[in-house]
Amino acid sequence: MFRSTIKKLFLGMIVVSSGAAAEGPSDRLKEECSACHALSEVTLDAQARMAQKAPPLYYAGTKYRRDWMVSWLQNPARIRPGGMFSGNHTVVTDDGDDIDPITLQDHVKLSANNATEITDYLMTLTAKSDLIIAGEYKPKSVSKRMGEMNFIKFKGCGSCHQAEPDYGGVSGPELYTVFNRLKPDYIVSFIRDPIVWQGVSLMPSTGLNNREIYKLVDYLKLLSGEN
């Protein structure tokens, strides 16, 4: 074990020094981004999930839309109002628990060139694509009123997610831009079973049927179209 650690240290030195000579997107990811983002397979438990610093990127090509990522990396607007785990950013006050925004860091900003280069590399990371049924989601229209009632009252998604800026739960990522961010078939798959992606999820897996899932995604599509 000791020997393999030395080997790893040694390999690490080679990677860093060769990176300085000719820096490609994968070197840059390893050097700058891997401090927070997982770049290879990890399975979490509840404790590790609470300590998770950033979303994993090793299946980025399966999950994210390319164009969204290129523009977000240049202008990273906050996605998770309560951070990666809201409990790490919560202050207890007399009026109840609240998110302390000072504890939330701004994301590193990339130039247009770097954002494109890194995104194109990330799009080649297509681990876990077996969890997706490609082309499964076929959009249908839904009224804003019915969609909202379903989302908040019947399915309880609004308890943890914002369906519009500054309104809705803060422990999950905002969902008013999610349809622009993530591939539709990934969204379907995630709602169907949030646990399989990282081995643990702070979102309840409630066994919704396909019709219920598609209806929710129709509503998320409507929200993103309006923004």
Binding site: A46, Q47, R49, M50, G82, F85, S86, G87, T90, V92, D95, G96, D97, D98, I99, I152, K153, G158, S159, C160, Y167, G168, G169, V170, S171, L202
Partner: peptide
Amino acid sequence: KVLYKAYCSQCHGMEADGYGVNAGYME
């Protein structure tokens, strides 16, 4: 305690008093 913090405190509160960060947005 660990599980409660991970899964439940978001609604039931860090002190389990019902005033989690999401509670203000729930009917």
